[in-house]
Simulated assay, not measured.
Amino acid sequence: MVLVAALGCLLLAFLLGVVALVAKPRVTAAGSLALIETSYSVALPETAVVHSSPSWLRSIALRLSPAGVAQHLQRRLDLAGNPPTWTPDRVLAAKGLGLLLGGGLGALIGVRSVGWLLAGLAAGAVFGFFLADLLLLNAGQKRQEKIRRALPDALDMLTVCVEAGLGFDAALAQVARNTAGPLAQECARVLQEMQIGKSRNQALRALTERTTVTELRAFVSALAQAGELGVPIAQVLREQAREMRVRRRQRAEELAQKVPVKILFPLVACLFPAMFVVIIGPGAISIARVLMNL
């Protein structure tokens, strides 16, 4: 009886395992890559509450926007790091809402006359419609600047790890683990895509599509050429790290050369009038007294 019961339990466990395998959906490499793309494009925090945007606001923005605006907004969102709760539909809804609110506010400001009313309505509507685009563009530029500033240090760490004996994937994992910021997030995404099934060149090419940093594009092109020609990666990384340090120094010198020009306008507008009052003021008073006595 004990043997029969044990055999029955084994048979039941086998049947349950077969049912679980059959019922479980198969996960393919293409599906996993699509899941990664979706998770990065609509990444939401755990505590976020998802609210659907009104469709009539999106329709207003779509009517006033050129064709292909959704792909253009998704490109902007990729450059900005896909902020949480922001999707192309929500950006379009924000543009429509900004159009209505900006137009109403401009009409309130110019309510004194018909001409001012029309001018305020038009100016407020235009400003409100493009406000979301300006904010998104600003966020993308700030993120790309952070990537540009972090790239030389990340390349130095990558070079040290590769020269110490680690492979390129392991060195990239060290960079993603020991650094913070947008560049570390992009490195982690590249590693995920490589682990799912993309080749190294494909993952790195996808990285260049999500950035506008010319130095990063040059680095990816150098890695791709090194892989095709059989050049050691350590040598390529060393040269690229040296070039990045030179470019960072040149960029700092360029910014330092721009400082005198930027200081000139506040100096002329704020400091020179006060200096003129202090220096020429007593002489002007003396001249006025002499002329009045005459």
Results as ranks from 00 to 15, higher is better:
residue 2 V to E: 12
residue 3 L to K: 14
residue 5 A to D: 09
residue 8 G to A: 15
residue 10 L to H: 10
residue 19 V to M: 11
residue 27 V to A: 14
residue 27 V to I: 09
residue 28 T to P: 10
residue 34 A to G: 13
residue 36 I to C: 12
residue 38 T to C: 12
residue 40 Y to A: 13
residue 43 A to F: 15
residue 46 E to I: 06
residue 50 V to Q: 09
residue 52 S to N: 04
residue 54 P to R: 11
residue 54 P to T: 08
residue 55 S to W: 03
residue 59 S to R: 13
residue 60 I to M: 13
residue 62 L to P: 02
residue 65 S to C: 10
residue 65 S to N: 06
residue 69 V to C: 12
residue 72 H to K: 14
residue 72 H to R: 15
residue 72 H to W: 10
residue 82 N to H: 15
residue 84 P to N: 10
residue 84 P to W: 05
residue 86 W to T: 07
residue 88 P to Q: 06
residue 90 R to D: 00
residue 96 G to T: 03
residue 96 G to I: 01
residue 96 G to K: 03
residue 103 G to N: 03
residue 104 G to P: 00
residue 110 G to W: 02
residue 111 V to N: 07
residue 116 W to R: 07
residue 118 L to H: 04
residue 120 G to R: 01
residue 122 A to M: 06
residue 125 A to E: 00
residue 126 V to I: 08
residue 127 F to K: 00
residue 130 F to M: 03
residue 141 Q to Y: 09
residue 143 R to I: 00
residue 143 R to Y: 04
residue 145 E to I: 02
residue 145 E to L: 14
residue 147 I to R: 08
residue 151 L to R: 02
residue 152 P to S: 07
residue 158 L to C: 07
residue 158 L to H: 07
residue 168 F to N: 02
residue 172 L to M: 15
residue 174 Q to P: 08
residue 175 V to S: 09
residue 193 E to T: 10
residue 195 Q to H: 15
residue 195 Q to C: 09
residue 200 R to V: 04
residue 202 Q to D: 06
residue 206 A to C: 04
residue 214 T to R: 15
residue 215 E to Q: 14
residue 215 E to R: 13
residue 222 A to P: 00
residue 227 G to D: 07
residue 230 G to V: 01
residue 231 V to A: 12
residue 241 A to S: 13
residue 244 M to D: 00
residue 259 V to H: 08
residue 261 V to E: 02
residue 261 V to Y: 11
residue 264 L to M: 14
residue 272 F to D: 00
residue 285 I to K: 12
residue 291 L to M: 11
residue 291 L to H: 05
residue 292 M to G: 08
